[in-house]
Simulated scan of single mutants.
Amino acid sequence: MFGYAPVHLDDIATVARGGSFQKKDFTEDGHQCIHYGQMYTHFGVYAKECIAHVSDDVFNKSKKAVPGDIVMAVTSENVEDVCSCTAWLGNETIAVSGHTAIIHHDQNAKYLSYYFHSSDFFRQKKKLAHGTKVIEVTPSALNDIIIPLPSIEKQNETVNVLDRFNSLCTDISSGIPAEIEARKKQYEYYRDKLLAFKEIEK
């Protein structure tokens, strides 16, 4: 099994707040954008296309994510959904709404996003979450998140394994619902095993 060196997020990334555009700013075409509310209903571990656009004027005033950045929703109605995120893997810079954190880094974007979907991360974010009716995690607080970080090569290997499981879980045509549910549980098990803290190999 892989040996991981634990690092704080701010050792490998910068965390910035998202912008302030709203759904009323959406246009039929223009620049691609991600609104934090879409994180709960549309986006998964990664995305290559957005489902909304904004005008040149709104885009120019917005905070932006470049390919490889992680976009994370830091406001939600519950602890389970807060910090839902996606790795932006499209080919262009996009506008990002408020109530988000934009995580810029030089690691494997899918690896980080898979980690942010793991039970290890869930335990850490629960300690950072605050609020009652609205649950929030302050973007700057994410800097203290500890991540098990192997080499880029091993990150790539982990992502290849998890991508295969993720594909089985999300592709309805690949099996009957009971089989998909079994694969989903298997995927979650291996995801958490691969992304859990371990002593780094000598």
Results as ranks from 00 to 15, higher is better:
Ile51Phe: 15
Gly37Tyr: 01
Gly90Val: 11
Asn78Val: 00
Ala47Phe: 03
Leu89Ser: 02
Gly37Gln: 10
Gln107Phe: 02
Phe26His: 11
Ala52Lys: 15
Lys23Thr: 14
Ala73Met: 00
Thr86Cys: 13
Gly44Thr: 04
Gly37Pro: 00
Pro67Phe: 08
His99Tyr: 15
Gly37Val: 04
Gly18Met: 03
Gly68Trp: 01
Met39Gln: 11
Cys85Ser: 15
Lys64Glu: 05
Ala73Arg: 00
Asp106Leu: 11
Val82Arg: 00
Glu49Val: 14
Ile51Gly: 01
Val66Ala: 13
Gly18Thr: 01
Ile94Asp: 10
Trp88Cys: 09
Gln107Met: 12
Ser97Lys: 04
His53Thr: 14
Val74Gly: 01
Glu80Ser: 12
His42Cys: 03
Met39Asn: 00
Val79Met: 09
His104Glu: 10
Phe21Asn: 04
Ser55Gly: 08
Ala109Tyr: 05
Asp57Leu: 12
Lys61Arg: 15
Lys110Asn: 08
His105Tyr: 07
Ser76Tyr: 00
Tyr46Arg: 15
Gly68Ser: 04
His99Asn: 15
Leu112Val: 09
Thr27Met: 11
Val79Glu: 13
Met72Cys: 15
Gly30Val: 10
Val82Thr: 01
Ala87Trp: 02
His104Val: 07
Thr86Leu: 09
Val45Arg: 03
Val71Leu: 01
Phe59Ser: 10
Thr27Glu: 13
Lys24Cys: 07
Ile103Val: 14
Lys63Phe: 01
Lys64Trp: 10
Met72Ala: 06
Asn60Asp: 13
Phe26Val: 09
Ser20Trp: 07
Cys83Lys: 02
Gly30Trp: 09
Tyr40His: 09
Phe43Ser: 02
His31Tyr: 12
Asp57Glu: 15
Val74Ile: 13
Ile34Pro: 08
Ala95Val: 05
Ala73Asn: 01
Tyr46Leu: 04
